[in-house]
Each structure stands twice: as C-alpha cells, then as structure tokens.
Nucleic acid binder design. Structure first.
Lengths: 246, 246
DNA sequence: TTTATTGGTGTCCTATTTACACGTTCGGCG
DNA sequence: CGCCGAACGTGTAAATAGGACACCAATAAA
C-alpha cells in the first residue's frame, strides 16, 4: 500500500489559529509521557502535526490536520516556513518521548510549518481520543520540540500578512460580521488600539466589503450593520493595489 | 564520518539573484545528459542546490551554495518556501537524469528554497568544473524539475520583500552607490518606472542613507553623490516603523 | 421610563503622494 | 578650447491619506 507509507524524516506542523473576538487562540494537543507503572514523567503540549505520505503533497498532508479536527476542508491554510535544525529534537523530554514512541531519537525530522485560520464560533472540534484544546497564544507555556519557536514565527507571519493582505482578516470572521468585529481582528492580532472613526475611513475604501440588508439582532444596544466579504471583488481590486514604493 | 552523511530526501535550492544595473539575473547550472556514446540526450539548466548533511541546519546547507560559488560567506540569504510535491521529479528528462546519477527516481525529494542576493559587480564566480552562468530572470527557458516554479516564487518573494523591507535593496548594490542606482534597483526588480524627484523625496526620509564625501568619477556627465547604507541605523529606525493599518 | 451599552458619524490639521521642467557639471570630441 | 551629449539635482502646487477628537441614536434589561 503506497498510500500508507510515510516519509519519516519529514512532517508538517499546523499552527491553527482561532479567533473568538476576545483573543487569538491556538490549537494544541496534550502530550503526556508515562513510565512503565503509568506514572506521569512529564506533560506538555504540542502543535498539531502530521506525517507526510510518500505520494502526497505537503499541502495535502497539512490540510488533513484541520480537516480531521473540524470536518471542514475549505479553511485557510498556508505554508509559512520550514524548520530543520538537528537540535529541534534534542531536548531531554523530547528524546524520552521519541524513544517511547519507538522513533529514532537521533534522526532529524524536518517539519514544514503551516498556518490555518478559523473563526472559532461555529467550529466544533472532533477529538478522536486526543486531547485537543484552544489556548490563548500568549499563554501556551513550554511546548514540545521547537514548537514555541514555530508558533512565534507563525504569529509574526500572520501579523505581517494581515497588514499587507487584508483578506486574511475575514478568515477569522463569520460570513456576516460588523465593522467593529473587523476592527477587533486587527486590534487583537496586531496588539494595538485603533480609532473607530479612522478605521471606518479605511473600510469605506474597501469596495469588496458588502453591506447587507441585515442588522445584528439580540444585542442590548443599537444593532450594527452586517457586512460580507466579496472575495472575487477583492482579487480584482487587488490587481491595481499600491504599496510603499510603486 | 557523521558529517558526510546526507539526508537524501531533503535538499536545499538557492535562487541566487545578481543585479548589474540593467537587469535582474539568476545563477543557473548547465545540466547535460549524455548517452553511453557520449551523445547529448538533452541539455537544460538547474538552480544551484545542495544536499543537507544530517547534522547540519538547513540554513547552513543553503549557505554553502553561494559561499562555494563566490568565496564570500556574508551574503544575504533567506529561506522563502519549501517544495515537496511528489510530481516535482516526475518529468521524463528528470527521471532519466536521476537514473543516470544512480538516484532513486521514485523517491520524492523535498527541497527548501532560499533566496540569495548579490551585487554582480565585484563578484567573481568560482566554477570548480561546473558550468555556472548568469541568466536574466525572464530568459531562463525550461529549467529542470520544478525549478521554473521555484524561481517564480522566489521572484514574488523578493519583490514583496523589497517593497516592505527596503534594506534588501542594498544587498544588490555595491557599498557606495548613487541614488539613481538605488532607484534602478526598484525599477528593475518591480518592473516599474519611478519619478526621480518623488523617489528622492522618499530617500530623503531614509535616515540610514549616509551621504559620503565622495562623488562618482570617470563618468561623462555631472558626477553623482555617493551614499552608503547604515544597517544599524536602519534596524533601530525600523523599530518604530508603521505600515498600512497600525 | 430609565439606564447601560455599543453603533455610527465629521472636521481640522498634518503628512504623504503625484505630476511636472530646467539649469548644472562632467567627459568626449571636433 | 569650445561645444555637445548625458545624467545630476532640485521645488511647487494640488489631491489624497492619516491622526486626533465627541456626541447623538438605537436597542435590551431592569
């Protein structure tokens, strides 16, 4: 069976970000190493990862991760960087872990890092026995292997992306959203406060933001106008997009 | 000898760009496959690449490429993307080539792509038997494996980088340069024409551009002021750098 | 009916962008 | 040695974008 053979020195790791209008969160898997008597040697968390089948593209292998966890297969996913230092598996806990899994603790595994974005609302996680939970990105503690570094790079990447490719912001929002929610995406991810009126001057120039014939309901204040994101309009209006030097 | 063992399903490929004030060029290696009688079966070009030693970081493996070719080891080098489709080695010529090298034509090789930047002036290539030459980036023809795709991604990457991290422009210039040369970097790489006076209004705001007590010599026109790039000043003045939404 | 809460709007000031033309200084050449 | 060709270096006016800032409106809950 070709399709069950894996390239065992290559993996993909997926930094799955979820946004809940309060904070940016990341999906982590609990990892617990037990000794022969079932006592805990250590416990920590890892990013979600996958092996890569020998006849599979890296993108496909990465895609399986959020797909298995959410049942959705059309989510935003992008490769951002590859990590391959021989040291990435050298910490004592990781060495113990690899041995206990029957994996060669000397063999360097190169991992290709992906970022996935989810609007947490509406998403129900499928566990399949693993203990997978959301953690605020600034409260993850010590992660396995070099996963703290991978997470840090993913954050840098997605912040940068948000700034110069605004379409990614909408991946973190439900299909219908308010301008305040959009502003919150920027505020939370970039860690800044923005002025409401100035922000709206910008959104007014985004022709791909479609005001709907619909307002928020069930809120104890003036209900906000709902908008949707027109991806096609975005793509075409990006063509003559200018930045910095051009 | 640990240091001679290689991870043989992982490689690094380096898109080495060189700038000569006329065009952007890329370093390519001639590849010729001969039959048993020494007749040419095909000939084409490949990017410069390397295997990765098992105890070596990816960055180090990539660094060896331009270092071997130029003798310099402080050049700009950055990982930009990893390519791992099983199809990348599937084209007939590539299959023949792999067989003739004694490599497994079925085994997918994941390659980590790097970009290197060189000011072509002053650089003397060290050939060591291989036929390595500069090609204008838009005249490379059909390259081996997926190297056309890798080159295209590298170009996209470096254009984007030039726009929002102006320091990379100086990697393509000699230590002393004129403002017109700097403008030419932007014009050639981004493929646009820029207005001289407006460009200079921008450079006037770049505090890290140091005017020297020196002018061009030997030119048949009014000699231009020479400048140098102060990297430290750049780093510190970037700290409070704003872009788009912040 | 009152209150708490968030939604939605405009102005002034400053900084940045864009379009645009001409005198200057050098080497080369006749 | 004077003229020519070629790139250098400079400023202004108009339009656009950015940043600071405050108040009324609409809803649900009490």
């Amino acid at each position: 069976m070709v399709s069950t053979m894996v390239s065992n020195n290559i993996s993909v790791d997926c930094v799955i970000f979820g946004f809940d209008f309060e904070r940016l969160n990341v999906l982590l898997v609990d990892r617990t190493l037990l000794d022969a008597d079932g006592r805990v040697i250590f416990t920590d968390r890892t990013l979600t990862g996958n092996h890569v089948f020998v006849d599979e593209t890296l993108d496909a292998a990465a895609h399986r991760i959020p797909a298995d966890l959410t049942g959705l297969d059309n989510i935003y996913l992008e490769q951002f960087r590859t990590f391959g230092s021989p040291d990435r598996i050298r910490r004592p806990n990781d060495q113990l872990w690899l041995r206990s899994c029957g994996r060669d603790p000397e063999r360097r595994v190169v991992t290709v890092g992906y970022v996935a974005l989810l609007a947490r609302r509406d998403i129900r996680l499928i566990w399949k026995g693993r203990n997978v939970k959301w953690y605020p990105v600034d409260e993850v503690g010590d992660l396995a292997f070099d996963h703290n570094q991978i997470l840090a790079e993913a954050l840098k990447y997605i912040r940068n992306k948000l700034i110069n490719e605004p379409s990614v912001g909408f991946e973190l929002l439900p299909p219908k959203f308010t301008l305040t929610q959009l502003q919150t995406v920027y505020e939370v991810i970039l860690g800044v406060r923005l002025d409401k009126r100035n922000f709206r001057k910008k959104t007014a120039r985004m022709s791909y933001l479609i005001p709907l014939d619909e307002k928020q309901t069930g809120v104890a204040h003036k209900p906000a106008q709902l908008y949707s994101f027109d991806k096609e309009l975005y793509e075409t209006s990006r063509k003559d997009f200018n930045s910095f030097f051009i």
